[in-house]
């Protein structure tokens, strides 16, 4: 019976055998699972305890089984970080729409003690997303580093290892991207 869709492991196996469509299907599946997980993650604000890496790992284990290749792993990490970014932006858009409707009178955000920098707002999240889009037009690799490091919670050595770059390069990329994004986000 074809009623049962193929599992991710199966799709990944087929992908390794050279079937591009299967690969896309696998990542489609993984991505939606990751988004679901990231949504949960966000909804609970579990803080730094369960970072995106763990989330990715969870999806990785659950979806692909133990026989996934390092390439699969790299793609999954990329997808996890991307999913986190997507979900954040998605939440921010909805929250903003709600605020405009005036449905909620008091958006009290706890934490962010007085005296600290102001807590980031919904608009900050959207501005960051747009700035990342502008950066992508200039240098896609920098966006990848930002996604992996900031949204994905990977360390610089991990990123370097996964991307086959030197640690120094990753550090330089991060510093460039960070400066660019902060410049874009700074009030005019």
């Amino acid at each position: 019976m074809d009623a049962q869709p193929p599992s991710v492991t199966e799709l990944l196996n087929r992908a390794r055998a050279g079937d591009a469509a299967s690969r896309d299907a696998a990542y489609e599946l993984v991505y939606s699972e990751l988004k679901r997980l990231a949504h949960c993650e966000l909804a609970h604000q579990r803080g730094a305890t369960l970072c995106t890496t763990a989330l990715v790992h969870e999806a990785y284990v659950r979806l692909s089984g133990a026989d996934a290749t390092p390439t699969d792993r790299r793609h999954l990490i990329a997808l996890g970080a991307r999913a986190m970014r997507f979900v954040l932006v998605d939440h921010a858009r909805r929250a903003l729409a709600q605020k405009r409707d005036g449905a909620v009178q008091s958006l009290t955000i706890t934490g962010g003690a007085a005296g600290d920098d102001a807590a980031p707002s919904v608009t900050d999240v959207l501005a960051l997303d747009q700035a990342l889009e502008r950066l992508a037009a200039l240098d896609p690799r920098l966006v990848q580093v930002v996604e992996w490091r900031f949204f994905g919670g990977l360390s610089e050595p991990e990123i370097a290892a996964e991307l086959g770059l030197t640690e120094r390069t990753v550090q330089r990329d991060w510093r460039r991207a960070r400066a660019f994004l902060h410049k874009e986000l700074a009030p005019a």
Binding site: L42, Q45, T52, L88, A92, I109, G111, V122, D124, G153
Partner: peptide, 8 residues
Amino acid sequence: VHTLAGAV
């Protein structure tokens, strides 16, 4: 990144 999560 979780501070952003708090915002949204």
